[in-house]
Simulated assay, not measured.
Amino acid sequence: MPAKFRQAAIVAKPHEGVVHYLQETIAILNECAIAYTLEKTAAQLLQIREFCAREDIARQADLIIVLGGDGTFLSIARQAVEAQVPVVGFNLGSLGFLTAMKKESLVQGLRHIFSGQAEISWRKLLQIDFKQQTFTALNDVVINKGTIARIVNLLLKIDGATVAEVKGDGLIISTPTGSTAYSISAGGPIVNPAVNGMVITPICPHSLTFRPLVVPDDSEISAQLLTAHMDTYVTIDGQTALPIEFEESIRVKIYPKQLPMLVAPDTNYYKLLYDKLNWGL
């Protein structure tokens, strides 16, 4: 990681309470002589006319600073990984596993970054091939039914071999990073981001014998919809939702590029779990 950044981009969640942290961030950038670009939402919160569109933000900077929750972080992950621009997230949301730095340590955290003390945590993404398009996901891809309370049936294959017909509310395929997102709520395991694997978690399976799986990250996973005449969707990182039709499939594997995520020099993943999940109670 370079000890000196030249141009930062600031991305913020649309909430008035963020203004104070935007002002603190800009003050540190000015103090460290770092130029900056504001994404549209951040500019609007500060009532500044000049801004950069979110889809172009990674091309305008060599560091992206996210002030918000994990949803805000996920909204720029694809652009950041394609441009190989490091991202740091300060949590202004609720849980915040991606925006792991605390808002209370914003000033200290930025000074660590600009003095070269922060570390890079490389995060793997999923590549999802669906409807002749390729998508990426930092957390997960989910197949689940719409509003009708009926069981959805999915044919699950790994490396071409049939694993199961998954009957239930749906299926989650996640990275280790995404194991603490939707997957954990559905009973999936917590997987350290350093582990080379993918997690397959059923959502309310009708068969109690089908349990979550962790598979090697050189695997290719496919899931085919076997239920006809039912509203079913593929949701990618909670950002994009696409309808999936009877007998259509998604194919999932690890994406060739990884996301460089900046973390504090004293970051410990298990301490993060302890703090975020209240394991000390």
Rank of each mutant, 00 (worst) to 15 (best):
P2L: 08
F5A: 02
F5N: 00
I10R: 00
A12V: 01
P14T: 11
N30L: 08
A33L: 12
I34E: 02
T37W: 00
G71M: 10
V81R: 03
V81Q: 07
E82C: 01
V88H: 01
G89S: 05
G89K: 04
L92M: 07
S94M: 10
T99L: 01
M101K: 11
K103M: 12
E104N: 11
S105I: 14
V107I: 12
L110V: 11
F114R: 07
A118R: 05
W122N: 08
K124L: 06
L125I: 07
D129M: 04
F130G: 08
K131E: 15
T134L: 03
T134V: 10
F135C: 10
T136R: 14
L138H: 02
K145F: 02
D159R: 11
G160H: 08
T162W: 11
A164L: 12
V166C: 09
G170Y: 10
I172H: 03
I173V: 15
I173T: 14
S174G: 05
S174W: 04
Y182C: 01
S183D: 08
S183Y: 01
A186I: 06
V195E: 05
V195R: 11
T201V: 08
P205M: 06
H206C: 07
V214W: 01
L226T: 13
T227H: 06
T227C: 07
H229N: 15
T240I: 15
E245D: 15
F246I: 09
E247Q: 15
R251W: 15
P256V: 13
D266M: 10
D266Y: 14
K276M: 09
L281S: 15
L281I: 15
